[in-house]
Amino acid sequence: MINQLFLMNGYGVYVWSAFGFTIFCFISLYLITKFQLTREQNKFTKKFAGLPQAKIELAKTQKINKEIIVNTPNFNF
């Protein structure tokens, strides 16, 4: 039965390569997008930390800025 699942009457190579290519694209796209999001969040948090205190207080009034910082992984002020 396992043999049948992999060989599929000789069509296995086509079926598995089509599914393999799809999964490869999914994983690559997910990892690249996640990397880009994390990079943007890190850039934002670094810039935020480098602001003068008065501007930090001003930026903190925007709820979304806090949300971005809270969701940035592995970042310490």
């Binding site: 599929m8 079926v15 089509a18 599914f19």
Partner: peptide
């Protein structure tokens, strides 16, 4: 035959 399974991703 089994090649029709490619339809499920295509």
């Amino acid at each position: 035959s089994h090649s029709v399974r490619i339809m499920y991703v295509h």
